[in-house]
């Protein structure tokens, strides 16, 4: 009887073979050379800017040169990026937005986000995420998708999620059906003993996987991520945590440490991808977070995963929590 009960409540696989195939086809277009080049360009752009030492961290922060360079990179792809500025409390934030309209449900928006401000020159954190935004924009602009895909690079994540908090406040009336956020997605190590974990969580010993964290409304997108990871052209090892309530992990801060937190707080289904930053990287928030530390193969797999997931979400029209 118990077995029968469990069988009845076991959820269906979230994606059909057809949906997986379509998403993986788009992800197959990820060009690892372009990813690495984009990271290098963003790092070089940051290096041209005189940093501001921000307290209480006491670290050099940069964002303006990266903002301008990112707009240029979108223009090179033939895409017009909008820079959405807010100037409050002494912080001028410039979010960079590219919108790719959907075909049959254009009012429904799937967000793909990262942040472009950095400490030092930030290769992994977070030029790697910005590089995936650029690659996604290139690939999605050549595809049709039912929902609108909005690609947003937030400013001032490092100093308190300022760009994303303002974005979700100012776009509260938009129909955000889901968000996929990235922060530091291209650092990996391949030796045992290289990975640690937040208190209470267990993670594999070798730091060659990504994590994907979801809030409760994003359970199905998170399961989609797990399903897609093994089907990619370059399969990704991913540890997926499904949220326990609408605003996941209130008791620990470790899982709210990027812009997805602003989305979760706004009640939007969100999945957050990361290489776990300080739980593996000795270069986290140091001047040594440089292009030479990037793992191109790992970064490519994460990019494929993220792009496949966003495409799958944008290709559907039913609520993200429901099976098609």
């Amino acid at each position: 009887m118990l077995v029968l009960f469990l069988a009845c409540v076991t959820p269906e696989a979230p994606l059909t073979d057809e949906a997986i195939g379509a998403a993986v086809d788009v992800a197959a277009g990820v060009d690892s050379d372009r990813l690495l080049t984009s990271i290098g360009i963003m790092v070089a752009a940051h290096a041209t800017e005189e940093p501001v030492i921000v307290e209480p961290w006491g670290l050099p922060h940069r964002h303006l040169a990266g903002t301008e360079r990112l707009v240029d990179l979108y223009a090179e792809l033939g895409l017009a990026a909008e820079v959405e500025e807010t100037d409050e409390d002494g912080w001028l934030a410039k979010n960079v937005i590219v919108e790719l309209p959907g075909t049959s449900a254009p009012d429904e928006v799937v967000l793909l986000t990262a942040h472009h401000d950095v400490w030092f020159t930030g290769a992994d954190d977070n030029s790697s995420g910005v590089a995936v935004l650029l690659e996604a924009a290139r690939l999605f602009s050549a595809t049709e998708h039912a929902r609108t895909i909005r690609i947003v690079s937030f400013d001032h994540e490092e100093v308190g999620l300022l760009g994303s908090l303002r974005y979700y406040r100012d776009h509260a009336d938009d129909d955000h059906v889901a968000v996929v956020n990235m922060d530091a997605v291209s650092f990996a190590l391949h030796d045992p003993g290289t990975q640690s974990a937040p208190t209470g969580f267990t993670l594999p010993d070798v730091a060659d996987f990504a994590v994907a964290l979801s809030n409760a409304p994003a359970e199905r997108p998170a399961r989609m991520a797990a399903q897609l990871a093994g089907e990619l052209p370059h399969p990704l090892k991913v540890q997926v945590a499904l949220g326990a309530d609408d605003n996941l992990y209130p008791g620990t801060g470790d899982f709210h440490r990027s812009d997805h937190s602003a989305a979760w707080t706004a009640g939007i289904p969100g999945v957050f991808f990361s290489d776990t930053t300080n739980f593996r990287s000795p270069y986290y928030h140091t001047e040594d977070d440089r292009i030479g530390t990037i793992d191109p193969a790992f970064g490519r797999s994460v990019a494929e995963e993220v792009i496949a997931l966003v495409y799958a979400l944008a290709s559907e029209t039913q609520p993200v929590g429901e099976q098609p």
Binding site: A13, P14, E219, A222, R223, A226, Q227, A229, G230, P235, L236, K237, V238, Q239, V240, A241, L242, G243, A244, L248, Y249
Partner: peptide, 9 residues
């Protein structure tokens, strides 16, 4: 908090 993976969705 539930956890899933590619071989355990």
């Amino acid at each position: 908090v539930r956890r899933v993976a590619a071989d355990r969705i």
